[in-house]
Design a protein around this nucleic acid. Structure first.
Length: 471
DNA sequence: CTATGGCACGGATT
DNA sequence: AATCCGTGCCATAG
């Protein structure tokens, strides 16, 4: 039911504990940077790219236990670029659900001006108007909304002109702008990187013939499609993730405004993925806790050997490195362990929520979970912070959502209000909820209404579409 | 008098 | 220790 690696390691020292705590609170993205930094400065740490079975040292080609000796393989998931599905918005209900505001396109004009300025020199005078028109016609993601033929007609230009201008725009600063979609944007960006890496060719091949598979991280399948070894595919995927941006316009907006750090609303790469391989009816849920790095980390055995026979001058520094390295590795394992146990409980308790939606979220507190796992509640707090999880239906939500005590009730209120012919007062709603076994104060109903953007009964009159307009 | 929004207290989170 | 969230109490708009 849960496929994750596990080395149960208990805290040993206060230093260990402290570091585990700080690592626990990091998202994958942040952890990745942390790990790379640590590896860079500590020679005793070794990042092993190949997946090797810890038991028999055989190379592994697929997930799961080693086929030869069946010991658990280290958890390893290459970090892949965000697939389109990673951005899936809850489009089911008519309400805007979670995913709050999402950075407003600051001002589309900004990006247009930015691009026009770059192109000013190279742009033929007769193409100017066309370029401006094209830039203004892009959708919020920076992609083309209209077919080239349409653009040509609208500006009475020739198709060649349009093609030329589109080409120039897409290769300008936020590269990939004015393309048809994420895939085309990525391809254009590859053009620009042409000679940067030997992986470009393979990456292009993947984008062209296995884009959907890439989104699903189905490396085995990709390998078949493009006839290349899986290891290569992983490298190429990592390259794509690290160097390309499927939504060029977002990068542009993001650059000037949000300082990247603060819990952005756009979840690029989920830290955890819950899927349900057995189609339909209750198959088991599979939880994948993504590792921040493809490959795994260990204390370099050679370094350990080398440091061993020494007690002399320099070895002191080496010993320090060794200690720090092994501490770091243990902390990472501790982190994995905590995350794994946390997810076990979440899946067990909230299976219905995961499968069927917000209404079935049962209220639970971090404290209770902490109790069951046997750790301090602040540990759970950290474990849950800054993480995102992809549900089987493709939605990506913050892990803290599992602890939202009011979500299911708010959901129910939305339903009640949406369904009832007569405007229900807060008291009536509270009564209805109580009948369903939900004990909430009338005052609280009012608060939830406010949160959901539902007007008070008085103003709701008739058939008011709970449009969350305004703002 | 009834339905709501404002303010403040107590427990949960960070 | 600093904050956030659910509630109770109270004043105010209908």
């Amino acid at each position: 039911m849960l496929q994750v690696q596990d080395h149960s390691i208990r805290p040993l020292t206060t230093a260990h504990l402290a570091q585990t705590m700080s690592l626990l609170a990091l998202s994958n993205q942040e952890l990745r940077e942390k790990v790379l930094a640590e590896v860079a400065k500590n020679p005793a740490l070794e990042l092993v790219e190949e997946r090797v079975c810890p038991g028999c040292q055989r190379k592994l080609h697929s997930r799961g236990p080693c086929p030869a000796c069946s010991s658990q393989a280290p958890q390893d998931h290459a970090i892949v670029f965000l697939s389109p599905r990673d951005f899936t918005r809850p489009s089911t209900g008519r309400q805007l659900e979670e995913t709050p505001p999402e950075q407003e396109p600051a001002a589309p004009e900004d990006i247009a001006i930015h691009v026009l300025q770059q192109l000013a020199a190279d742009l033929l005078p007769e193409d100017r108007r066309l370029a401006a028109y094209v830039l203004s016609s892009l959708n919020e993601e920076g992609f083309l909304q209209d077919a080239p033929a349409y653009l040509a007609r609208a500006t009475s230009s020739t198709l060649t002109q349009v093609g030329r201008v589109l080409d120039m725009i897409s290769h300008a600063d936020p590269p990939g702008l004015a393309t048809e979609g994420p895939r085309q944007a990525l391809l254009v960006q590859l053009d620009i990187l042409e000679d940067q890496s030997p992986l470009v060719g393979l990456a292009r091949q993947i984008l062209e013939s296995a884009f959907a598979e890439l989104g699903r991280r189905d490396f085995e399948r990709i390998a078949v499609l493009v006839a290349a070894p899986v290891a290569q595919i992983r490298l190429a995927a990592a390259f794509i993730h690290d160097n390309l941006n499927p939504y060029p316009a977002r990068a542009f907006w993001g650059s000037g405004r949000q300082p990247a750090g603060a819990d952005p609303n756009v979840y690029h790469q989920p830290d955890i993925q819950i899927s349900r391989p057995q189609t339909e009816n209750g198959g088991p849920l599979v939880v994948e806790i993504f590792a921040p790095i493809a490959g795994w980390l260990r204390v370099n055995p050679l370094f350990r050997q080398a440091a061993q026979p020494a007690a002399e001058g320099q070895s002191e520094e080496w010993t320090k490195h060794l200690e720090r390295a092994s501490l770091f590795v243990k902390c990472l394992q501790q982190r994995n362990n905590t995350m794994r146990r946390l997810m076990q409980i979440l899946v067990a308790d909230q299976g219905e929520f995961i499968r069927s939606g917000d209404r079935f979220l049962v209220p639970m507190t971090r404290a209770k979970v902490a109790d069951r796992i046997g750790v301090h509640e602040s540990t759970i707090s950290r474990a849950v912070a800054h993480k995102s999880v992809a549900l089987p239906n493709g939605r990506i939500i913050p892990l803290t959502r599992f602890f939202d005590r009011s979500l299911s009730v708010r959901e129910r209120i939305k339903e009640l209000v949406g369904a009832e012919p007569q405007p229900l007062t807060d008291d009536q709603i509270a009564a209805l909820l109580r009948r369903e076994g939900v004990r909430v104060a009338r005052r609280t109903v009012a608060k939830y209404r406010a949160i959901e953007g539902i007007l008070p009964a008085r103003l709701r009159h008739r058939r008011a579409i709970p449009a969350a307009a305004g703002i």
